[in-house]
Nucleic acid binder design. Structure first.
Lengths: 226, 226
DNA sequence: GTCGCGCTTCTTGCATACAAGATTGAAATG
DNA sequence: CATTTCAATCTTGTATGCAAGAAGCGCGAC
């Protein structure tokens, strides 16, 4: 059941039920899952390889609290990945568009009901769902991990994330994809992720973002913006 | 020493000293490293999370033999990542250009000396070195893992890889970066990785590539080619 | 010779035992 | 009362033991 433990813990992170910095006791998890520490450690080791948790020697396992640098890295990587995918992708098929539309509809419902746990999940899953259309499991897994890390960033830095603004961005990206304008979709996606990152960083420290953008040499807007 | 075990095994894969399909016995590795099976299993678990090895239950651990689909995924992801990075990156600084030039020089030496083990490593490391200039550890780690998987693909499918052709491509990409033409660099990188993939697939099955390109919806050339 | 069956051996799966550092709390001392 | 120190406890780190399935091999039957 080691994969089940990893998946369960990851789901808890993705849905925001486990906060960054939480301690994960091997013994408690072992008891909760009804297995020995061995399997728990295996699952935690896998999650550590994905930068979801980390172990402090002889102290314990903790859900990572992404530093500002880490946060910038994750967002930059997400932008690169999704932009690179969309800009080079063939226009989506009807079925693929329908799949995305179904997601957008779910988002809208969650916004209406103000279901925050579900929104947390859906906001990241939108981007996973986009790259999922490639059928590229490697790409999807990478994006899934980044989305999980993004949640930890949001939970740490963002007191109250503006789900409505994100949802509107998602709708705009969806509409560009739906009309076959992948170039616009790529650009909108890039800008959307920049905005989300900026919103989070402003919550923390007003000028932190400029500092970080200099660290990572990725602050040039894609063609068609400046 | 679990990290050391993982790093050692990964290095062996990256340098082509361990072939895809090789069996990795927990007992033998434990003896070789002078530790118990526990630490070996931890290292193997980490490598499994990176798709470098896999375990067949009750049978053993094996270095992955990437399927044609997997190979296509890895190349597609590399293209997306590197294209997305370069197209959005600011022009490189003098120091960054010098770093890449040093790598190109190393490649040239290895080509001259026909040092195949070193070439195997350098061919993948070039792309790692490019994204390294971002200072984005997340991005670098992702690319590093993909480069390792690419080596397994080459070793499995490519009887004799044309290092000279790849080197020339690398030089062209470097020159584009050096003159600050990131757009050209991105395009050249994309095409280079396409060519390498095509070369490998042709060795295997002449028409396999078309089949695969249809599976992944990523066969559109970036702007400026078709 | 060839096919099939069973035993032996080798493999990983998982639990457990013990070691050793980190933490916490209480007791003793100033 | 404050502070310090030591012991009890809790944490992970690593090795080991045992179970269970897979594979290889030899022997016997046909």
């Amino acid at each position: 059941m080691p994969r089940g433990i990893e998946a369960t813990l990851l789901a808890a992170v993705v849905e925001g039920r486990i906060k960054p910095g939480s301690k994960l006791s091997e013994n408690q998890l072992a008891e909760a899952f009804g297995v020995s520490r061995t399997l728990v450690r295996e699952a935690l080791t896998r999650l550590e390889a994905r930068n979801i948790v980390l172990v402090q020697p002889r102290k314990g396992w903790f859900v990572v609290e992404p530093s500002a640098e880490e946060a910038a890295e994750v967002y930059a990587t997400r932008r690169i990945l999704e932009y690179g995918f969309l800009i080079n992708a063939a226009p989506f098929t009807e079925a693929q568009i329908a799949d995305l539309q179904a997601h957008i509809e779910e988002e809208r419902k969650a916004v209406d009901q103000n279901d925050k746990t579900r929104l947390t999940y859906l906001m990241g899953d939108f981007h996973v769902r986009i790259v999922k259309q490639s059928g590229n499991a490697t790409l999807v897994e990478t994006m899934r991990t980044l989305a999980a890390r993004t949640n930890l960033i949001s939970l740490r830095y963002q007191s109250e994330h503006n789900a409505l603004a994100s949802h509107k961005d998602h709708v705009a990206i969806f509409e560009a994809i739906a009309r076959g304008d992948m170039k616009a979709a790529a650009r909108l996606s890039y800008e959307h992720l920049e905005d989300v990152e900026a919103g989070i960083m402003i919550d923390t420290s007003p000028n932190a973002i400029d500092l970080l953008k200099n660290t990572l040499r990725l602050d040039e807007a894609p063609n068609g913006r400046g």
